[in-house]
Design a protein around this nucleic acid. Sequence first.
DNA 1: CATGAATGAGGTTTCATTCAT
DNA 2: GATGAATGAAACCTCATTCAT
Lengths: 198, 198, 198, 198
Amino acid sequence: MPRTEEQFHEIRERSKTQILNSSLKLFAEKGFKGTSISDIAKDAKISKGLIYNYFESKTAIVEAIYLHLLNEMQRMMEPIYELKDPSEKLQRIVMDTVKYTSENKDYWKLYLNFMLQPSPVKFEEVLNPKFFQKFFLEFEEIFTDAGVKEPKNMAYEFAAILDGMQMHILFMDNLYPLKEIQNYILNKYSKKELKKKK
Amino acid sequence: MPRTEEQFHEIRERSKTQILNSSLKLFAEKGFKGTSISDIAKDAKISKGLIYNYFESKTAIVEAIYLHLLNEMQRMMEPIYELKDPSEKLQRIVMDTVKYTSENKDYWKLYLNFMLQPSPVKFEEVLNPKFFQKFFLEFEEIFTDAGVKEPKNMAYEFAAILDGMQMHILFMDNLYPLKEIQNYILNKYSKKELKKKK
Amino acid sequence: MPRTEEQFHEIRERSKTQILNSSLKLFAEKGFKGTSISDIAKDAKISKGLIYNYFESKTAIVEAIYLHLLNEMQRMMEPIYELKDPSEKLQRIVMDTVKYTSENKDYWKLYLNFMLQPSPVKFEEVLNPKFFQKFFLEFEEIFTDAGVKEPKNMAYEFAAILDGMQMHILFMDNLYPLKEIQNYILNKYSKKELKKKK
Amino acid sequence: MPRTEEQFHEIRERSKTQILNSSLKLFAEKGFKGTSISDIAKDAKISKGLIYNYFESKTAIVEAIYLHLLNEMQRMMEPIYELKDPSEKLQRIVMDTVKYTSENKDYWKLYLNFMLQPSPVKFEEVLNPKFFQKFFLEFEEIFTDAGVKEPKNMAYEFAAILDGMQMHILFMDNLYPLKEIQNYILNKYSKKELKKKK
DNA sequence: CATGAATGAGGTTTCATTCAT
DNA sequence: GATGAATGAAACCTCATTCAT
C-alpha cells in the first residue's frame, strides 16, 4: 500500500528543509563554489543522488535560499512601513537588523557572498547598485520626515552604520558587545537626538 | 648572448607582477575558487606552466596577494600614528580609507572574501575576531584621547561607519556620492563636533 | 472485497501491456540507453517501482519486446510458406513487409536498433549474420522454384529492395509514396515479369 | 624552450585524430549513449581529461564525426555530377556506395544511428525526410535523362537497392557476396538493360 | 625562462534499482 | 498491487598540477 499523498508531502518537506539547512550552513561557511554536493549530502546525512530529487542543480539550491532570504528581508521591513514616527522607524530598523543578523548569521554571510560574486548569475536583478540606492532613498525619506538638516547624508551614514555593524557582528561573533552598541545607536536616533539635528 | 642577472631579475619581477595583477582582478571578481589557473594565465597573457615558475600553487598566489594587502594596510596606518591630534587622526583615517577603497576596489573585495571564507587556510592568524578587536581598541584610545564621554561606543560606531562606507563604495560603484558623504563624515569628527561629545 | 484471481490477472496484463507499449514507443524514439525507467513510468502513467513488479530489469523489458517482435515476424512468414506459387510468395512478402512496416514503425525502428547495437546482449543468437543468410537462402529457394536464371543474385536484390523500402518508409514517414512504389515492385515480381528472367 | 607552433600543431592533430578514430569505432559499435568518455579514453590510450582539451563535450565529438561524414558524402557525389551518361552515373553511384560502405563500415553504422535517433539534436537539419527526398529527386532526374518509362519508380527502387545493400554489407560483414551482387546490380543499370526499360 | 599537452583526482549529475509503507 | 523516496555506481566534465621540449 503506498503512502498517502500527505505522508509523501511531509517526507519531501523534511528532506528539502534538511538539504536547505545544510546548504545554507556550508555555503555561508565555505562559499558556494567551496561547498560540494558531497559536502551537503554528508552534512544532511543523505545520499548525493537524493539532492537531485529535490533540486535541479546546485545552483537551484542557492537560488532557493536566496529567494527565501529576500522574502525574509521583505517580511522584516513590512511592519516598519506601518510605523509613523521617523525616530521609531529608524530605531526599529536598527533593532531588527541587529536581531536578524545575530540570529541568522549564516544567511547574512551568504548574502555578502552573493554581493561579492555574481556566481549563480540570476541574482543581479536584485543585488545591484540600484537596489542599494532604493534603500538609501527610503532612508532619506525618513530623515526628511524627521526634518533634519542633511537628510541625504544622514541616510548614508545610517546605512553605513547598519551595514558596518552587521559586518562586525558577523565577523566578531560573541566578542561583539551587541547590546551596548545597539543601545548607543538607538539613542543616536531617538527623538531627542534627532531634534538636535534640525 | 646570455642575459645579465639583472635582466633575468627584471623579467621575473615583471611576470610575477603581471600574475599578481591578473589574479587580484579575477579573484576579486569571481572569487578564489571561481578563478582557474587557466583564467589567470589567459588574463596575464602567459602560459599556465609559467605560473608555476613563480608560485608554488594557486594558494601561494592568493597568499602573496594577501600579504601585500596587509603590508599596504600597515603602510597606510603608519603615518597616522605620528599624528598627535585625535580629530586629525580620525579624519585622516576616514580620508585614507575612502581614498584607498575607491582606488583599490579589487583589493578590498578580495579582503572581504578572505573574511567571509577561510578558503586558503593560513590567514586565520590575522583575519580573526581578535584582529578586529585590536582595531577597535586603537580607535577607542583615540576617542579617549579626545576626551569624549563614550569612547568605546564611539569607536565601534566609527568602525561601523568606515566599514559600512567601504561596502557601499564597493557595491555601488560610481553611484556612491563619495565626496559628499566623506565631507559629512569628516565634519562629524572635526574638533568642533568632537568637543560637543565631551 | 478481495479481487478475484481473474481481476488480478487482468490488472497484471493491462499494466504489463501498458509498460511494453510505452517502452516500445520510447525505445524506438530515443533508443534503449536514451530511455530511462522514469521516462517509461511517466509515459505509462504508473510509478517507477511498479515496473519492477512486472519486469526484472530494464533489459528484461527490451527482451520481452524483442521476443514479441520475433514472434510477429514468424507469424507473418507462416502463411507465406503455405503458398505454392513463387510469384505469389514474393508478392505476398512484399505486401506483408510494407503493411507491417508502415503499421508498426516503432517495432521496426527498434529492430534496426537491435541490429546496430548489441546493447542488451542476449540477442546475438538471432540477430546475427547467419540469421540473415538464412533469409537469403529462403529467398533464393523461391527464385530457384521460379526457374529464373540467377536465383541467388535475384534473392539478394529482392532482400535489398525489401530492406531499403523499409528504411525509406521508416525515415520518410508520410512523404513516401507507399502505394505507388509497392505496385511497381509487385509488378516486378509478377508471374509475367519473372518469366522474362528465365 | 617551448616546442614550436608547428610541433604543437602536430601533436594536437595526432591526438585529435586518435580521439576521433576511437570515438567513431566505439560509437558505431555501441552507439553514442552506449559509449562512455572513459571507453574512448581507454581505447585512445589517453586520459579522460585530455579529451576535453580537444572537444568541448561528448556531443561535440559526435558532431565532428558527423560533419566529416557529410563532407565525405559530398566529396563522393561530386565526381558523379560531372559524368554525362545516365547509365555511367548510376553505375558509378553503385560502385562508390559499395566501395565506400565496405571500406567505412563504422561511418555508415553511425550514420544509421544518427537517423534512428535524434540524440545529439543539431543534425535534424540534414538527416530528415526532406533530405532523402532530395536524393530521390536527383535519382529520378537521372532516370528521366535515361528516357525510361517510370523514372520515379525506378529511382525509388534504385535507392532501395542501394540502402538495402548497404545494410546487408554492414550486418553480414564478410559473409556478403560483395563482388557478385555488385556486378549483378551494375549490369541491371547498364546501357543495354536501361534501353529495355524505355 | 616558456609553452601547452597530458594527467587524475574530484566535482556535478543521471539513473537503474531497492524498499518502507 | 502500487507509490515515490532513497541509494550508489557510474556517467560527464573541470581544473590544479606536472612535464617533455
